[in-house]
Design a protein around this nucleic acid. Sequence first.
RNA 1: GCGGAUUUACCCAAGUGGUGAAGGGGCUCCCCUGCUAAGGGAGUAGGUCUCGAAAGGGGCGCGAGAGUUCAAAUCUCUCAAUCCGCGCCA
Length: 430
Amino acid sequence: MLDIKLLRTDPEKVKENIRKKFQDDKLPLVDEVVQMDKDFRAAKTRADELRAKRNTMSKQIGGLMAKGQKEEAEKVKDEVKQYGAELEELAAKEAELEGEIKKRMMVIPQLIGDDVPIGKDDSENVERERFGEPVVPDFEVPYHVDIMEALNGIDLDAARKTSGNGFYYLRGDIARLHSAILSYARDFMIDRGFTYYVPPFMIRSDVVTGVMSFAEMENMMYKIEGEDLYLIGTSEHSMIGKFIDEIIPEGELPKALTSYSPCFRKEVGAHGIEERGVYRIHQFEKQEMIVVCKPEDSDEWYKKLWNNTVDFFRTLDIPVRTLECCSGDLADLKVRSLDVEAWSPRQKKYFEVGSCSNLGDAQARRLGIRIKGADGQKYFAHTLNNTVVAPPRMLIAFLENNLQADGTVRVPEALRPYMGGKEKLEKCKV
RNA sequence: GCGGAUUUACCCAAGUGGUGAAGGGGCUCCCCUGCUAAGGGAGUAGGUCUCGAAAGGGGCGCGAGAGUUCAAAUCUCUCAAUCCGCGCCA
């Protein structure tokens, strides 16, 4: 969400930004907001005048009543009543305009970073850096589910029976690997100075509407029947939600947090759950990073955050690259964002395993997350988030990259302490 | 989950419809005194929106939201949180 003052003073800049994101259909919103804002302030000024008048006269009535001058009081009462209709009308207009303005402000995109590449959609995202050699082995790498099944590591049939498509049972060393990755990721981030959190996995509707758009909510969130609760789609929801309407003393910043949670997603919309396997599912687990910091520090944190994910994957011998989101692919709240992609030797291409975003003050403005400076001044914080690792996608990258010619899967050094010292995965009993 | 009590500023706390939301502590500034004390005075209801070049006005605001009223901290409803008791439970 932008500062409405920016639309008052420099609407062209806001329009230019909308054009850069190829959302020209939103261009009229800017002038609409400017006009509505004018009308709103006029209505408010007039309504406030009436309210002031009413307050004075009400006090007069009080004085008269105290003195026992009932009839005088009644006279003034009638006079005040006359303002009633106009005030009610103005109040309704105020509320309506405020709502309409907010509705538009919610969809007018955040100003993107100066150096964000301009492009229409994800096909125009720009590769930035590669880390590690993307190896294509001279044997054929099977589909990840097949690798898992060879180790008895997954049972999709049973999951379909109990829960439907888009769920899985993990088993044996694959299940253990899943937990090991999360434990390792947790310690990895703690070692880098992040504070570890386990947040609530359900949140109230007012938090949900605070952290996402209505459309996102419909397509992602599972609602608990008979309760004002939703299952979180990522721990970012509860982690950022905890700061709603908070004024944070400058000295407490930066807040560098890493949180674990299961994530629940309906996955309605564009892709759905069409593919067999664990790439896109209704329930997965994730280790996340969240940063709340001063505006001048957010660029630096942005670099640090994606670097953490890159380093994490590299310790597991998985080649990765970073892909910068172009203007058109950037979500409306984001200043900049990049995907961390892991190498798939089977598909011979990189695929998304994490997403790192700098939201500038957009999220903070929307949620009322502010900083109180040493001089008492208050200003909006910057917020960032990034995936450390989401095990299902990591499993795909892990299995494909660590598969040996003899069909065994090697356990990289870093994970062995979490796998009981095992050097390779073993087939389990079912 | 049930019943009761509670929610007012940095802290304690008064306030059951009517002119500036008492009072105390703390904090800030000033005065008096003078050496670890004591006293006096002033300020201190956050926050936010809005009008104004500014000085300065005005609106909202007593856990949140809605309602009744000329007028709500005060009355009504919904919700939340805290404490106590009972119940249930890993």
